[in-house]
Amino acid sequence: MGFFRSLFQPRHTSASIAKERLKIVLAHERAGRNAPDFLPLLQKELLAVVGRYVEISDDMIRVTLANSRDTSSLEINIEIEGGKLKTPTGALSAAV
């Protein structure tokens, strides 16, 4: 029964969409749970700076702080979609 059901069930049921959405939002929130308060501001400012040079949206940048026993590392991940670069002049004028 279960096998046949899985054969005929459409892959994108609302339950599977719910699961995917939850996984993404919780991964985000867990990473930020013990983070210092300045991280969101840092992320915002980085977004503004990078945004002058490449097209970027809010969800393409991820800033996390990892603590191990004696070192902390700040990890910044920026996703760039197909390298949509802005023209250097545009970047310059935006910077001024």
């Binding site: 059901r5 069930q9 459409p10 049921t13 609302s14 599977s16 719910a18 699961k19 939850l22």
Partner: peptide, 16 residues
Amino acid sequence: RVAKGEMLAVEDVKEI
């Protein structure tokens, strides 16, 4: 409703 894919299954919630 779980069988119809309308509700998160036990395994899904447990995994998340």
